[in-house]
Amino acid sequence: MDEIPEGRPLDSRAELSEFLRTRRARLQPQDVGLPNFGRHRRVPGLRREELAQLAGVSVAYYTRLEQGNGRNVSAEVLDAIARALRLTDAEHAHLTHLAKPKAHKKKKAVRQQYMRPVLQQLLDSIEGVPAYVVGRRSDILGWNALAAALFGDWGELAPADRNWARICFLDPRSRELFVNWEQKASDIVSYLRMDAGCYPNDPQLSALVGELSVKSEEFRSLWATHDVLEKGHGTKRIRHPLVGELTLSFETLRLPEDCDQSLMMYHAEPDSASAQGLRLLASWGRDASSVGSGTT
């Protein structure tokens, strides 16, 4: 297995501070029922004192929290702040991870990811549906022949490069493959942000973020938004060089006994042009010689 460079752990205090600041900046007083006095506001969005008022905490208390000191914050206060900031469920979970990191996270973060062989057998048995298993840091751990035919043969890549973030931002072909590449890129960065909240001490995640920040201005811009996302299903439009444009729905199936791994499955509407395109790809994919799995 190729070595993956390690980086310094992400600064949890800075992450908490920036997340709260960016969430506060996106709200205006009128959005939350507060009067907007004057046009000359020195900061974008809500002021700290306005947010503290909405959450029912003192300004000094909220200021300490936004400065990254969440060590003694209670779940009730975090809930109140989440409501005041109108956080989504994913953002609320991310705030909790940042403010109240658990002692066992460092141990979990350094453990290598491993996909059970039986999962590869399951993937190989799935016909007519592109399917793959993705783990932490958007690492691609295993896939079936149709997924390789649809997205590209990940078996030709070094294990460290079987990663959606690297593929999306560093491989120019991904911009042609995804009709809405910007949305794909934004989603991936949002998933990485969720990982960063759960595993702030993961050196491989830090190295990945550092690498992409150096090599991609678009990644740097998206990373700075501090947006987080959990998406269990949706639609992707793929522009395939062999069969043209496909509109595919996807489902994300969590694997509860395999930490942080998900089975991704794509399917087309029956009797549609996209379904016909998948059938053509499946026929072509049966001749492909590489169906892979790996650890990172």
Rank of each mutant, 00 (worst) to 15 (best):
E251M: 13
S283H: 13
C198D: 11
G197S: 09
T88A: 05
L222N: 01
S12P: 04
A93R: 14
D187F: 06
R86K: 13
E49R: 13
V129Y: 15
V291N: 08
N163G: 07
R23E: 00
Y191E: 08
V73A: 01
Q113V: 10
A288K: 10
P35W: 11
K231Q: 08
E269H: 01
G244D: 12
T295R: 12
E245F: 10
E245H: 08
P159L: 02
P172G: 12
L27V: 10
L54S: 06
I238P: 08
R173I: 14
L87M: 15
Y199C: 06
S283V: 06
K106L: 09
D139F: 04
I188W: 06
A93W: 02
S290C: 10
H40C: 09
G277F: 01
H233D: 07
E66C: 09
L248S: 09
L263M: 15
L150Y: 06
G38A: 06
R41G: 07
D139N: 15
G33N: 05
E156T: 13
E6T: 14
G128Y: 02
Q30C: 13
L20F: 03
G33Y: 07
R8V: 14
L123A: 01
Q30K: 11
H267C: 03
Y132W: 15
A288G: 05
L27K: 03
D79W: 04
E76N: 08
M115I: 15
A282I: 04
P270A: 07
L255E: 01
G232F: 02
R13D: 12
P29H: 00
A288F: 06
M264Y: 03
P172I: 14
Q261M: 12
R136K: 14
W284H: 12
E49M: 14
V110N: 02
E211L: 11
A25Q: 00
R24Q: 06
G152R: 04
A25C: 08
F151R: 00
L222H: 07
S249N: 15
Y191M: 12
T295H: 15
R254D: 14
W143D: 00
L34P: 04
A224R: 11
H240Y: 07
D271S: 14
R239P: 04
R254L: 03
R23Q: 09
I238T: 01
V43A: 05
D31S: 13
E6I: 08
A84Y: 02
G210F: 03
G294P: 06
K184V: 07
G292M: 03
L177D: 04
Q276H: 15
R83M: 04
Q30N: 13
V118N: 12
T235S: 13
R254T: 13
E182P: 05
